[in-house]
Design a binder for these strands. Structure first.
Lengths: 205, 205
DNA sequence: TAAAACCCTTATCTTTTGTTAACGTTTAAT
DNA sequence: ATTAAACGTTAACAAAAGATAAGGGTTTTA
């Protein structure tokens, strides 16, 4: 993954708008933040994170999408997707700075604003930025904690068929963007099984 | 759940030690923290959180244990457990201050140190405590994010049998403390199915 | 201490999922 | 433009899980 230090005006705008959901920086603070950011464009099928390596960055997707997957018995098992205006990282690897087990791959050409772990630590200790960056990190972690909580609950409480039907209702748009066998993995089943579920839940109009 | 404002010396010590994994407060800061804490002892089978209500507190378990469960079609489905020196809350409900769908029930008499949402917000804005409390909240959220990430991965990547065998290796002690049908729910299967898995994976010595 | 509630196992039957392979279609690569 | 790779569906069979019920043991509790 190539990073160039300078972030375009357009990317900065998208990023500032995206993080406004968590914390607002005034202009002085924002000027201090900018030098800690970098930018990257990942080509389709290139990787943001790979098994066995420390995930160096957290990224904000300005444009594009990625999928998370693992290798099991030589096969790729897709576990998650991220799209525009979402943060992406192999969180456990990034947060612990230990080698991870997650691959993150661009589903299409994907434009990212990046914060390296090192720069994040600098901002967290920065006299002007530290307090707000702590808050920012807390709120982002809390947000994704809630997402994961829902996801775990869906595995505990719902059958694969119920998970699929709920996904149709709440995330129907994703199904149009993502190959179906990735969705099957995401639901915790095989592609063949998802195909059967689709057939038996079809509304014959 | 009864709360009394004063926290015993013993509880304070356990709590301070427990959060030291995340952040250290000096004595001046600690004296400022104490008034924001409260304490509660929950009897076996009493609830820390229930469906439809906002979860008001995050708790630190000094002694005892709890289980998380949901109601589905009138049946209780257990999704998680917490033990001594862990934080416990219906996180999504607590963090968003919206009514939750999670029941949290004491598995035995359980002694907790509590932080109400309101007091947490006061500490986050407190001139002396704010920065460290933001950091504390961030690190706790990050820690549980990593836990949830592992848990989701286990549902994506492993069969129920593999999840059980891994739990035997990494959490064998839990199995001795928790009724087996709760463990089955935790693994995403029925108690009958777990009983079968146990039989077919038995090492006949 | 007796009754009730709870817990785990086992058996039977049904449903669902996994596995493998084949087929036609679409998409991508050369 | 042609070939190759990828994708979704379907079929057939095996394996696993769900549902239900029964039996025996333990723990609660009244």
């Amino acid at each position: 993954m190539k990073c160039h230090q300078s972030v375009s005006v357009n990317e900065l705008k998208a990023f500032r708008h995206g993080i406004a959901a968590y914390v607002n920086f005034n202009d002085e603070e924002w000027d201090a933040v900018i030098p800690f950011l970098s930018s990257s464009t990942i080509k389709k099928k290139d990787h943001f994170a790979v098994n066995g390596e420390v995930c160096e960055h957290i990224g904000f997707i300005v444009e594009g999408s990625v999928r998370f997957y693992h290798l099991k018995d030589g096969a790729e098992i897709t576990g998650y997707f991220c799209f525009e205006n979402e943060f992406v990282s192999a969180y456990k690897s990034y947060l612990t700075q230990q080698p991870g087990i997650t691959y993150i791959q661009a589903l299409e050409e994907t434009q990212l604003v990046l914060i390296s772990y090192h720069n994040m630590q600098l901002m967290l200790k920065h006299p002007l930025l530290g307090y707000k960056m702590e808050r920012f990190g807390r709120l982002v972690a809390e947000h994704y904690l809630c997402c994961y909580e829902d996801r775990v609950t869906s595995f505990i409480l719902q059958t694969p068929e119920e998970r699929y039907l709920q996904m149709l209702e709440t995330n129907g748009a994703v199904l149009l963007r993502i190959p179906q066998h990735y969705v099957a993995n995401f639901l915790g089943i095989t592609p063949v099984s998802l195909s059967r579920i689709r057939r038996r839940t079809l509304v014959h109009s």
